[in-house]
């Protein structure tokens, strides 16, 4: 489904990604772990198309289509979804209006009828229950004055509504208490499907107790330095990053 070959990217002429290679098949859940500054978030942003990052070489395809040639919104319409580490607050645009505009943009792209307000409201209410967000959140401004946990749940709710082919979760566990982590994890597990790939970016392994990945990759210095199965995450928890020759003062678990 997703194929990344020798991806290099920089921001303001500073190289961050220095040759990423990764293949994800439909139905698989991959976790990318690594210390701060290793390039985890950059990888997420580059895949979503953030223009603040420049791809200097390499190739990314989604179901054979060159992702790097597509504009941000076209990638989304082709099925790329990024759950933001820091979701943006947009006062003045209601969550409902935002979500309906997004869903209808996708439907239009697929040649489907747009949903009217009533139809959409019904669906949005159902999905908001799945992530334990009160429907009143739909009427509030996008992420406006949401707590950290509410913002993350709102991200997962969007993924459930938009039904992407590739869901990228950028530090979705950060800032969550244990109950919120459980809710968010349930939402992510509900996303797991045979025709969908999930890429989780996380600093800590605790998320992986709730969402069990098929593969774990360690990112350091802009490259994937080790790949393995679920057990790799446990080993990292036990031993830190040091045994891989990675200096990470921040990782203490």
């Amino acid at each position: 489904m997703l194929s990344i070959k020798n991806l290099h990217a920089s921001v303001e002429d500073k190289a961050i990604l220095k040759g990423i290679n990764l293949d994800i098949k439909p139905g698989e859940v991959h976790a990318i772990m690594g210390p701060n500054g290793s390039g985890k978030s950059t990888l997420s942003q580059v895949l979503a198309g953030n223009e603040a990052f420049e791809v200097t070489s390499g190739e990314v395809t989604l179901n054979g289509e060159n992702l790097l040639d597509l504009a941000i919104e076209e990638r989304a319409r082709e099925g790329v979804f990024l759950a933001f580490q820091y979701p943006v607050e947009i006062p003045g645009v209601s969550n409902l209006q935002f979500l309906r505009t997004a869903v209808n943009a996708m439907r239009k792209h697929r040649g489907e009828e747009e949903m009217n307000a009533a139809e959409f409201m019904k669906q949005a209410k159902e999905v908001s229950k799945q992530v334990d967000l009160d429907p009143s959140f739909l009427k509030r401004g996008v992420n406006e004055d949401f707590s950290g946990g509410e913002k993350k749940r709102n991200e997962i709710m969007q993924a459930l509504l938009l039904q992407p082919k590739l869901a990228i979760l950028d530090e979705t566990d950060s800032g969550l208490d244990i109950d919120a982590l459980q809710v968010v994890s349930n939402g992510v597990n509900a996303l797991r499907a045979e025709d969908r790939a999930i890429l989780m970016v996380t600093h800590y392994q605790r998320l992986l107790n709730h969402i069990v990945p098929d593969y774990v990759h360690v990112l350091a210095g802009g490259r994937i330095v080790k790949s393995g199965g679920r057990e790799l995450a446990l080993e990292l928890e036990e031993r830190g990053y040091g045994w891989l020759g990675i200096n990470d003062e921040d990782t203490s678990n």
């Binding site: 223009e51 989304a76 979701p87 006062p91 003045g92 943009a105 996008v142």
Partner: peptide
């Protein structure tokens, strides 16, 4: 904010309109 809206499949024009209206 524009990036956030675009990343949900909303077109650039609609994103501009939403944010200006906001």
């Amino acid at each position: 904010s524009i990036f956030y809206l675009l990343s949900r499949g909303i077109g650039r024009r609609d994103a501009n309109v939403l944010l200006t209206m906001a």
